[in-house]
Amino acid sequence: MRRPLGRGLHGLGLLLTLVFALFPFYWMVSSSFKAQADLLASPPVWLFRPTLDHYAAIWADQKVTTAVVNSLVVASLTTLLAVVLGTPAAYALARFEFRGKADLWFWFISNRMISPIVLALPVYLLARQAGLLDTYLVLVLIYLTFTLPIVVWICTDQFRAIPPDLEQAARLDGARQFDVFWRIYLPLGAPGIAVSAIFSFIFSWNELLYALVLTRRDVQTAPVVATSFMSGYELPWGKIMATGTLIVLPVTIFALLVSRHMIRGLTMGATK
């Protein structure tokens, strides 16, 4: 008797969690297809005649398309730089002993513990001082502060799992340090590098707070534009939801496609 009951409770728990996690997502997507009247109906309507009006509206809005391009540029540049800078750092952390290694490692992990809002104002002041407000560069730099640790963290773990014998065999084969990194560690660490690149891209793509604080007009990213609809005298829920869906959908599809690798990336280092 206890077993079916336990299983039932387990299923119920899972269902509640799923509803909790997915309902906002469902509400956003379904709202993006509702006409204005259905959107504002109270009580809410569950069955409605879908419309693509909001999508047509945002497609016509150059602000949105520019913002999507900006998001693409910032997220791609950040990811590229995070991988280019992070993988050699991860190799060094995985294979060499040097002074301050433990502190550096702690720093990489611990800067995920600081709430971004704490740093928003100082970062804003710094960026203004340096004349970097509303540039790609400032977003890429600030995003690197949290994507670089992700790359270093995941890749260090991946590189540590590569048997040291391979490096020694390569050294005996005449490979220099860079050859070892380039020809042995990078190809063998590819799964971890790919996972960390995916995370970097998703985090950069979704980031709102710094984009909101550090951009004005030229390089506003998609999440910023979505929230910008909220200002003014009306709340165009349809446009906001359609933009939100457009932002989230590609990343969600991508994440579902590579979910197996992502779970592997998340559990890297959890077991030895």
């Binding site: 084969d173 020809r183 063998l188």
Partner: peptide, 25 residues
């Protein structure tokens, strides 16, 4: 030249590439 206990063959390379690696270097 050393033969390791773990063989230490480069897993992402074919046998031919493994054997050629030292001479390519």
């Amino acid at each position: 030249a050393m033969v390791f206990q773990s063989y230490a063959l480069y897993p992402h390379m074919s046998v031919r590439q493994n054997m050629a690696f030292g001479m390519r270097m």
